[in-house]
């Protein structure tokens, strides 16, 4: 029975896939009844001394869905975890007199320090690139606005591509096109990852619901990433009492050096 259902589903998907796509999209646009809810088990991630990154599972539910569309796999969900935003500068090296020197640069305004994306399938197949671009979902559609004067903007593309490529290869931007799974008809779970070199601050979990290529609903939840214990004390002291902190660092060095010379003294 189960296998039969699967086969039927596959057949349906195949049948609807190409020709019916455009037609379905036009029907009943804008009268969405669906609602999206998400939840995380914690709103705070603590960084301890043995922190090596964390996997985060986000649970969510879609209410008021159309069972027929659901059965056809028309509902798609994208979940992203965005790190705190900061300006980022991309620099390009060129050969000058035989050595490689940074010659040009471009600063992008307030881009997330980390970005983990998880979806029911490859996001390029969930909605047209235009829609993704408008919403700024995915590394390829992330808004990269250059700061200051950029000349004729002819090199904007290469700097943007370089930025995306470097952030992805360094692991702070990542995507998992199978990371969101339906565990029942309306419940889903998504896994996103915090990299080991995660920036502290407020991260935002965002979930987007798409029905047949059209954006339906979104939800966002904050997630605070904080240092705890000794790490917290050290960071706080370093920023609030920088002079004392520096003095303490020197004192520590003096004690270590002195201690070693006493400990290993031969005469």
């Amino acid at each position: 029975m189960r296998r039969l259902a699967h086969m039927a589903l596959a057949a349906l998907t195949l049948a609807f896939a190409a020709p019916a796509f455009a037609q379905l999209q036009d029907e009943n646009a804008n009268d969405f009844t669906e609602k999206l809810e998400i939840g995380i088990s914690t709103d705070e991630i603590a960084i301890t001394s043995d922190f090596r990154g964390a996997d985060l599972t986000i649970f969510g539910a879609v209410d008021g869905f159309d069972p027929n569309l659901l059965a056809q796999g028309k509902y798609n969900i994208i979940v992203s975890l965005e790190g705190p935003k900061d300006n980022a500068t991309v620099r390009k090296k060129e050969r000058v007199f035989g050595i490689w020197v940074n010659t040009s640069s471009m600063t992008f305004e307030l881009v997330p320090e980390s970005y983990s994306l998880s979806s029911t399938r490859d996001i390029e197949t969930i909605a047209p690139p235009g829609e993704m671009g408008n919403m700024g979902i995915g590394v390829d559609h992330m808004r990269l606005v250059p700061l200051g004067f950029v000349g004729d903007g002819s090199n904007l593309g290469e700097f943007r591509n370089a930025f995306r490529r470097i952030r992805e290869t360094s692991g702070v931007y990542e995507r998992d096109p199978g990371g969101v799974q339906f565990i029942s008809s309306s419940l889903f779970k998504a896994s996103v990852r915090l990299p080991a070199n995660v920036p502290n601050g407020v991260h935002v979990v965002r979930a987007y619901l798409f029905r047949d290529g059209t954006f339906v609903a979104a939800k966002a939840l904050p997630l605070r990433v904080v240092k705890t214990g000794v790490e917290q004390v050290i960071t706080q002291t370093a920023h609030e009492q920088p002079f004392l902190y520096g003095l303490f660092a020197v004192l520590l060095a003096v004690i270590t050096g002195w201690g070693a010379s006493l400990l290993f003294r031969k005469d």
Partner: peptide, 15 residues
Amino acid sequence: LVIPPKDIYSVVSAG
């Protein structure tokens, strides 16, 4: 300094 770098681009954040 002399050999071509693996990547001629580099990214730094403001922090």
